[in-house]
């Protein structure tokens, strides 16, 4: 899985990767085990994070619309990537590139 490899590159830039989905914790655990993700995946059933980030999918508010943020040490959003096609996975290598350039 692409993101797993990218995670090592993210760590190398002294950053931490946190993924958020609306999956139940049990599903999150299963996904983590199956894919050996290595990074933290959080369950946001009640959209405690998804709503404040305005990240709910407008066509299906029960799930998040895929998007990336880079948050600096002082908690400010420094970079963002949103897939305009609104479907599919995000190009993870873009994140590493952005971490290097910021």
């Amino acid at each position: 899985m692409e993101l797993q490899k990218v995670y090592q590159a993210i760590k190398a830039e002294n950053a931490e990767l946190i993924a958020i989905t609306t999956d139940e914790p049990a599903v999150v655990k299963k996904t983590e085990n199956q894919n050996r993700l290595g990074f933290v995946t959080l369950s946001d059933r009640n959209r405690q994070a998804i709503d404040p980030y305005n990240a709910a999918d407008p066509f299906n508010p029960r799930i998040a619309r895929p998007q990336y943020y880079i948050i600096d040490e002082s908690g400010i959003i420094q970079w963002k990537f949103l897939d305009e096609r609104k479907v599919g996975r995000l190009p993870a290598p873009k994140v590493v590139e952005a971490l290097k350039n910021l």
Binding site: L3, L17, T21, A64, P66, Y68, E73, G75
Partner: peptide
């Protein structure tokens, strides 16, 4: 987030889930 930000940069990924 507060546990991480403040120490290091955080890449936050929102995803559809069950990948």
């Amino acid at each position: 987030l507060a546990n991480y930000a403040g120490k290091q940069r955080v890449v936050l990924l929102f995803d559809r889930g069950a990948w």
